[in-house]
């Protein structure tokens, strides 16, 4: 199994990085890369596999970040538990928004817009509600090195936490891809009417995809809030965050297992390559993202994974 060996080697290398490289900067960059791959994979379950494009995934991200931070701040509950509560709340909200959208058969642009509107409702509500910190947001009180409270004196712990989360998620999505539900999701994406005619219930399958997607994105949001010890309405629920979440899986290849990871890697490298420039001009990296997004739509309509696949197919045909 040379393939398995290759993956194990890659994994071992990822696990070794903090032991070999001491630079906080490199560790931080990789941590964020894994983090974006994680939330991107969350979006990918609904947007990629099930084909329901959401422009408002910041909704679930914000719910995860806010729930875990608020539980800690108000109740003293450790974010290790709070993050799962956040995921549960996100699933609840996802089921409500999903029920409303799918029950009435919203798809395509309409679904994308209604998700954007739901996220905006939460953003405005969080901005105006003093209990959750209003427009200032929440500063998670620091307790020093407290692993039981999801706080670490050394950023390398966060690296291992998100690496483990990403690993577990990748494994789970690989299983999902080969499961009954996974095939049903793909069938609905490719042709909903045909899937319906074959006895698949599109409403239930889309709701299931929504629930899974919401839970994963919320877990990512909770990690983010602990990592930066801070969350505010714009970072949590803002449209810019929704774009950040969907950008990487789309560049990498929506609806593929490795798409979000590849997208996170590529955009991460690009971000580092242009860091000097980006630092001197606020907004430049988003400008670049805009160009990349437009370029990807024209030249890589199925993402990098799609392009690699068609290259592979072409090579196989020639052989």
């Amino acid at each position: 199994m040379p393939r398995t060996a290759a993956w194990l080697a890659l994994l071992a290398a990822a696990a070794m990085v903090p032991l070999v490289i001491r630079s906080e900067y490199v560790i931080g960059t990789l941590t964020l890369m894994y983090f974006f791959a994680f939330v991107g994979q969350g979006w990918n379950i609904l947007g990629g596999y099930a084909g329901q494009f959401s422009f408002g995934h910041a909704l679930f991200f914000g719910i995860g970040a806010y729930t875990s931070s608020l539980c800690f701040l108000k109740l003293g509950l450790t974010p290790w538990v709070g993050m799962w509560l956040g995921a549960a709340v996100a699933v609840g909200v996802g089921l409500v928004t999903g029920h409303l959208s799918f029950r009435y058969g919203l798809r395509g642009a309409y679904f994308a817009l209604v998700m954007l509107a739901f996220a905006e409702i939460f953003r405005v509500a969080a901005t105006n509600w003093d209990f959750v910190g209003g427009s200032f947001g929440i500063l998670v009180p620091l307790q020093g090195h407290a692993p039981r409270l999801f706080q670490f004196g050394d950023k390398r712990y966060f690296y291992y936490v998100i690496l483990a989360m990403l690993l577990a998620l990748t494994w789970a999505v690989a299983r999902l891809e080969r499961s009954r539900l996974g095939y049903q999701m793909i069938a609905i994406r490719e042709n909903e009417a045909a899937a319906d005619a074959l006895g698949i219930n599109p409403y239930r399958v889309k709701l299931a995809a929504m629930a899974l997607s919401a839970a994963v994105t919320a877990l990512g949001g909770a990690f983010y809030a602990q990592y930066f010890s801070y969350i505010d309405p714009a970072i949590g629920f803002g449209p810019a965050n929704s774009i950040e979440i969907l950008l990487r899986p789309i560049i990498g290849g929506a609806g593929t297992l490795w798409g979000p990871l590849l997208g996170a890697l590529l955009l991460g490298l690009l971000g580092e390559g242009t860091r000097g420039l980006v630092k001197s001009y606020a907004g430049l990296h988003l400008m670049l993202y805009g160009v990349i997004l437009m370029g990807a739509v024209v030249f890589l309509p199925r993402g990098v994974m799609g392009a690699l696949r068609s290259l592979g197919v072409g090579a196989a045909e020639r052989a």
Partner: peptide, 27 residues
Amino acid sequence: PVLRAPEHNQLLMTLGLALFLDNLALV
């Protein structure tokens, strides 16, 4: 170029354009 592309790619195209123009103005 994307008029006959799938709907989500058209959405992404105008989203990319918006990102570009907004942040161009920011810069």
